[in-house]
Every structure is written in C-alpha cells, then in structure tokens.
Design a protein around this nucleic acid. Structure first.
Lengths: 146, 146
DNA sequence: TTCATATATAATAATAACTACTATGTACTA
DNA sequence: TAGTACATAGTAGTTATTATTATATATGAA
C-alpha cells in the first residue's frame, strides 16, 4: 500500500525533465494532496493563499506541462471546464447529468479491444469509460419534486 | 436492414413534439444524410446554400432541441467543439491524438457495470468508451519523420 | 560562485465556442 | 383565419482557453 507515501514533488518534476519552480511545486502538490478532480479555475483560486501573484496563464501552462509529462491527467467530460487529477491507477468516470458531479470508478480489467484495434489498425494508448446517469443524491431529489 | 430507408424528417420532428420548421428539417436531414460527426460550425457552413439567412444561434438552438429529443447525439470528446451525429445504434469512439480524427466502433456488448452502479447507487443511462491512440495514417506518417 | 541562457512567469490581449437577449416572424390550434 | 406560443435572426455577452511579450528565474558551465 502506498497511500501514505508523501511524494517528493521536486524529485517528481526533475524525473520528467521539468524545471522546479515554486508554481509547479505548489500546483502539483495541491493536485496530489486533494485526491479529487479540479478545474484550472479552482486550482487558481486555491493558490491565492500560497502564491498570491500566481497568474492564470501559469496555471494553464503548468497543467499542460504536467499532463504532457504524465504526472496528471486531463479529463474533458461533461459540461464546462476540463478537470485534472493526479495520475494514479487508471480509472473511469461517471457523471451525474443532474448536478454535474463527477465520480471515479475502477475496473479490474478494461474491455478487450484488441480485435477492434487490429481491424482499424489503430494503436490504442488509453481506454476510458464515461458513464452518464443520475447520482444517488439526485435520484432522491428527483423523487421529491414530483 | 434499414440502411436504405429515407426517414420522413417532419414526421420524426412531430413524433418527439418539435415544431416543423425549414431550419430544423434541413439541419436534421443533413445530419442524417451525412453519416459522420460534425460540429455546429460545420453544419452552419454546410447550410449556406440551402438556408442563406440561417443564424448561428439557430444552429445551436436546433442542435440542443434535437439532442434533448434524442434524435441526435452530442459527443464532447477530444479537443475543440462538440460533435453531433445521428443517433443510430449505440457506438463508441476512438480519437487519434495526432490528427484529431474521430472514428466509430461498435461492440456486441457494453461492459457490465451493474456491480459498480449498485455499489455507487448510480443510475446508469449511457456508457460510452473513449479510446485515445494513433490512427493508421498517422502511425505511418510518424515513422517517416524519424 | 557567478554568469549565460534557455525557460518560466505575469499580465494582458485575443480567440473559440457557446449562451443570453430581444425584436420580429411563423407553425400550429382553436 | 386569427391568436398565441414558440422559433428565428442578429447581436451582445460569457466562459474557458490560448497567444503574446516583457520581465524574471532555474539550472548548467566556467
């Protein structure tokens, strides 16, 4: 189990060939600490305490560098802004079409697409399942409205 | 097999409770005729011949009405604009991370997520698989560059 | 340790893809 | 064949993101 290991952020950055700056350190640390998904804007606002001079464009630049380097993952799903999360074990997403909340889920095995890939001569890098539906809370809320 | 049946567009619109207007007729017809995916902007430009006075906002309104009614499907995937396609058999998508092209694929069965849904008390409406990778053409193009 | 330089940052402007608004026009129904 | 609820066109506004550029800084070499 590695859920208690505090990763050395500067080390992580160096390992993927990125310069270590206070901005990158703080942003990556924040994404790794809070385990959930967050938008660029949420990250920007969370940083006001630590880095009051942080610029929005630096947030976007940093998120791009980090995700190009594979340290975080960008999720474009549902309405609104892209979300980012720490690139832990591969997982999939359920989005509630009522409240927009995003939930993770894990599968022991991803669907076998080797046949599809062969036929289309497509080289598969990643496979992500997107589920749309209604979350627990909203199912009950819906009932109340009728 | 129903691939040759020309659907009666006004009839389709009425059936889902939408008023029949020349704009809706032309846009839905266009999406059903060309089988692929297209963006709002592509649709807008394709209509210049048939409906020169068509407004961009009408395209967006119409696409929203049609997809709310279940006649077309919106795909938010990859970079850039939402894509729309006629809501045929359920299918999944592969996107090439090099050229951005989107490819459909079909599965006999979608992954069984009943256990996941039960555990999360999530009511699943649809399940869409997104594959990222490199398409046939770009694999060869990549090789040439080295 | 200091310097050189390639890269990062902040601030701002620009863009793309929508969404909101509103006056006018039109499909449907009573 | 109105009347009315809804649709459209045109425009303005918004949101998320990218581009630009002058200044600042991390890192490798001397």
């Amino acid at each position: 189990m590695d859920h208690d290991i505090k990763p050395n952020i500067p080390e992580l950055l160096k390992r993927v060939g990125l310069r270590v700056t206070p901005q990158r350190d703080a942003i990556l640390r924040h994404i790794i600490d809070r385990k959930g998904h967050m938008s660029a804007d949420q990250i920007y606002r969370s940083m006001q305490g630590t880095l009051p001079n942080l610029s929005v464009s630096t947030v976007y630049n940093t998120l791009k560098s980090l995700s190009d380097a594979g340290l975080i993952r960008e999720i474009k799903f549902g309405d609104g802004a892209s979300l980012f999360d720490a690139n832990r074990e591969p997982h999939h997403h359920m989005v509630c079409t009522v409240c927009g909340e995003l939930f993770d889920f894990y599968l022991k095995a991803t669907p076998d697409l080797t046949h599809i890939a062969q036929q289309a001569r497509f080289h598969i890098d990643e496979c992500h399942i997107e589920v749309k539906g209604i979350c627990d809370a909203c199912q009950h809320r819906e009932v109340d409205l009728t």
